[in-house]
Design a protein around this nucleic acid. Structure first.
Length: 600
DNA sequence: CTAGGGTTAG
């Protein structure tokens, strides 16, 4: 009997090698057209079912954010092995689709394919930053059951994920870190990073001093700990002492000084740093914007573009958020203009930031234009727009938007309901608000949280239903916080209920003993009741504890410049004229029936 | 593993 022995490599093998090579090249350049071309060749050679070709195809599609095509490539293979599953899981994680990653993981288990050393780190990466504590615990149990801890990458990922899940997670990370036999520099860095996030600065510093070897990441982590705690002197000390500084070290310092309000120092470091990437530019621009220094922020934004740097989504969102916070409509519009100039379409998160910025700056028309121009709206988009209408007293429009949102098939979330209740408050729709509050659980499956109670207390309180508001506070399933009592106090003040106000303010001082506003509120209440002994008592207490009330300031932006003024402010060159104008306005208001509100 | 990142009641 004759046996057939091939004398030369069959053509499909050489063809396959060629394609594989082409695929691994494509992996680097992420060009969808080229991948599609190679894909066609693969189909022609009938290699799409191959267990070595398919993963490369999945990875290439994933890089181009073509998950539909990637999943399709996956489905071509009859019996996927663990490598193929891992590739798909990683693809989902890379495209920030964590739930899809988990679905693939469960599908893999159902098919009887066992996970390996690579599977868990990918899954953990999907958990990282998501606070999926339960899922992480489940993965952890799996790992212990299958004994994959031999690879240091696995416990390191676990420590990182755990330490991003709040106090409970940090505890789990601590425990794991303690029992780990061998630790590398990443294990230490992850643990220290977790402690810094948890605000355990002392413990973090202890570990930092204890670690056998430190790299720049270690230094940056502890630097950030001090910067976030506002201890800039200590941070600077370390910054000067550290053996090597990279962009992250400089950026951490700049960010710290910006948050500390020391923009001169931030700017000095920014000018001095040798390599400026997009992130430090973003930090310094947002820093100026947050402080209301529009001119400086705009000029830096221009300089950044001149330097050839294109803001990414993160930069745009960050700067727009800063504009929203301090009401810098001018800068916000400039950023919007530059987006329109350079981008055909912007992503949903950037549009959301634009809507929020315009809404918070009071330009509802522009907010609504951006909102209506969006092709892919998210619940957040609706929330930002709704909040904008609500905040500026357009309760009717806010509620109309709410109906439209439901009509277009969006599920309201807890933030939406805050917006709806807020809209009812500002438009004076007390009964409607009460209705929404008591039906939100049955209609939308949203259990009222402390924010919703806050809205309700504001709604009832402003409507003069103080007793009801107080009853609601006492019936709350959670502990009322300072905002709740503050809201109730505001209502007491509005309706001159001194007795209730006195009770409320006591609770408020228990919760916020160092807030000067509470003390001056208390003294105002006593003054209104004519209880002058108590007034001087409060003043004395304030002086003894060293509490000082900073005077409140208002601000307005005119021609890209922020003007700030306080009560009895005479610092403006035209203050004579300004006060004349105010007097005239008050006269006019009194004529139409306005009565100034004050305790004394 | 470290720097900037959207909606939340006064």
């Amino acid at each position: 009997m004759q046996t057939f022995t091939p004398t030369r490599t069959p053509t499909w093998v050489s063809g396959r090698r060629l394609l594989e090579e082409k695929l691994s090249d494509l992996h680097k350049c992420a060009n969808l057209d080229q991948i599609k071309q190679v894909h066609a060749q693969i189909l022609k050679a009938d290699l799409h079912r191959d267990l070595f070709v398919a993963p490369k195809l999945i990875a290439a599609f994933s890089l181009c954010r073509q998950m539909v095509l990637a999943i399709n490539a996956f489905n071509q293979v009859q019996e996927p092995n663990v490598h193929l599953y891992n590739t798909l899981i990683r693809a989902h994680v890379q495209n920030s689709q964590s739930s899809q990653a988990f679905a693939t993981f469960f599908e893999m288990q159902c098919s009887g394919v066992y996970p390996d050393n690579f599977t868990y780190p990918f899954l953990l990466k999907a958990c990282s930053g998501q606070s999926y504590l339960r899922v992480i615990q489940m993965i952890h149990t799996h790992i212990e059951k299958f004994g994959f801890c031999s690879d240091i990458f696995v416990p390191n990922s676990l420590i990182d994920c755990y330490s991003k899940c709040g106090p409970v997670g940090v505890n789990a990370a601590r425990k794991l870190f303690k029992v780990m036999g061998e630790k590398d520099i990443v294990s230490w860095n992850s643990m220290i990073g977790g402690l810094v996030r948890a605000g355990e600065l002392g413990e973090a510093r202890g570990l930092f001093d204890e670690m056998p070897k430190r790299d720049t990441v270690s230094w940056n982590t502890i630097l950030d700990g001090y910067a976030k705690a506002g201890e800039m002197n200590r941070a600077f000390e370390l910054f000067e002492k550290m053996p090597e500084r990279n962009v992250v070290s400089w950026s951490t310092m700049i960010s710290g000084y910006c948050k500390d309000g020391d923009l001169d120092m931030a700017r000095m470091l920014f000018d001095k740093m040798p390599v400026k990437t997009l992130v430090p530019w973003t930090i310094i621009i947002s820093g100026y914007a947050e402080k209301g220094l529009a001119n400086e922020a705009i000029s830096l934004y221009n300089k950044m573009e001149e330097a050839g740097l294109k803001p990414d989504d993160g930069a745009l969102i960050s700067i727009l958020a800063a504009c929203a916070e301090s009401g810098l409509l001018g800068l916000g519009q400039k950023v919007h203009a530059s987006i329109k100039r350079t981008k055909y379409k912007c992503s949903a998160p950037v549009s959301n930031a634009l809507v929020d910025m315009y809404a918070k700056c009071g330009s509802l028309d522009e907010a609504y234009i951006v909102f209506n121009g969006m092709t892919k709206r998210e619940v957040v988009s609706w929330n930002a727009m709704l909040q904008g209408f609500a905040m500026h007293g357009h309760g009717e429009k806010a509620l109309q938007l709410f109906s439209r949102m439901k009509h277009e098939g969006f599920e309201p979330d807890k933030v939406t309901l805050v917006g709806v209740l807020c809209a009812c408050t500002h438009a004076g729709f007390v009964e409607e608000g009460v209705q929404y509050f008591y039906t939100m659980e049955s209609k939308y499956k949203i259990v009222p949280e402390v924010e919703h109670y806050g809205c309700m207390i504001d709604l009832l309180g402003r409507g003069g239903r103080l007793k009801e508001a107080f009853r609601l506070v006492r019936s709350m399933p959670m502990e009322p916080n300072a905002i709740i009592w503050g809201t109730l106090l505001g209502a007491c003040r509005m309706h001159n209920d001194v007795d209730l106000a006195r009770q409320v303010v006591d609770r408020l001082i228990q919760l916020e003993p160092s807030d000067p506003g509470n003390f001056s509120m208390l003294s105002n209440i006593y003054a209104a009741a004519g209880d002058w002994d108590s007034v001087s008592n409060v003043r004395l207490r304030m002086r003894n504890t060293g509490i000082q009330k900073p005077s409140g300031a208002s601000s307005i932006e005119v021609d890209d410049e922020l003007h700030e003024f306080t009560v009895f402010d005479r610092s403006h060159p035209k203050s004579e004229k300004i006060y004349q104008m105010i007097d005239r306005l008050v006269q006019d208001l009194k004529q139409v029936g306005y009565v100034p509100k004050a305790y004394q």
